[in-house]
Amino acid sequence: MFEWLGITPQALVAQLLVGLINGSFYAILSLGLAVIFGLLNVINFTHGAQYMMGAFLAWIGLTQLGGWVGKPDWEVNYWVALVAAPLIVGAIGILIERFMLKRLYHLDHLYGLLLTFGLALVIEGMFRHWYGISGESYSAPEALQGGIRLEGLGLFLPKYRLWVIVASLTVCLGTWFVIERTKLGNYLRAGTENPKLLQALGVNVPLMITLAYGFGVALAAFAGVLAAPVFQVNPVMGSNLIIVVFAVVVIGGMGSILGSIVTGVGLGLLEGLTKVFYPEASSVVIFVIMAIVLLLRPAGLFGKER
C-alpha cells in the first residue's frame, strides 16, 4: 500500500522517528512558554535567547571555563551542565522578572512582548559579539555517542537522539504532573484564574510568579543543553526555532500545559512527514495549521475561551 507514496514503510517509520525527536524539542520549549504565559500573561520572546544561553553555557563549561580559572584540563561535563545551566539561566530569568517584567504587569500584553523581544536582541547581540556567528561544536558525552543500527528500518539511530526523546518527554510529563496533580500545582492554577483571591488566602503570589518565570526559563535552557550536541551552538540558534515554537503554543492553546506538550510532539511528527512528501513546504506547514486552527478554534486545540 506504500508504493503509491513513493516511499517504503521502513523509510516512513524512520522519518517519523526523526520527526518525534524534533517534536520533543518543540514540546519542551512550548511547555516553558505555556507555563510563563499561563501565570504571568507575558509572551516571553526571550525564550529563544534563553535556550541559546543554555547551549552556550554547556559549551563554555566544557571548553572554556577551565582556561578562565587557570586549569585548562578542568571541564564541566554534559551531565553537570544539564543541571547547572538551567539553574544559572533560570536565576538570570528571575532577575529579569524581578527588575524588569514586574513593572509591566499592569500594562497591556504588548509591553511585555516588546521588552522580552528587545532583551532577546540584546542577548543575541552580545553572544554574536563575543563568539561570532558561525558558532561552536559541542560533542555528545561518551556514553551517548554512536548509535543503534535498526536493520529492519535500514536506520542508524544515534543514541543521543533517543536520549533527547526520553529526557524531554520525562521532563514534560513531570511538569504536567506537578501542575495538574499536586497541591503546588493547585496554587499555580488558582493563581492563573484569580491571583487577588489567592493572595487574600495567604499565598505569596508575587513569589510564585517569579519562581514560575524562573522555571519556564530553566526549561528553555534545559532544551538548549539537550540541543547542543545535535545542532551547532550559535547565537541565533534560538531565534530560528522560536517562531515555530510560538506557533505550536498558539495551536495548542495559550497557557495550556497538556496542550503544548501534545501539539509539540504532534507537530514535530507532522513536520517530519512534510519533509518527506513535500520538503519545500516544511517550514510553512506549521503556520498553515496555525491559521486553520485559529479560524476554527480561536482559543487553540486545548485552550479555554476566557
Partner: peptide
C-alpha cells in the same frame, strides 16, 4: 530544504 534550516536529518 527551507533556508535557513536547523534539522537536516530527514
Amino acid at each position: 530544504h527551507p533556508f535557513p534550516g536547523s534539522d537536516f536529518s530527514s
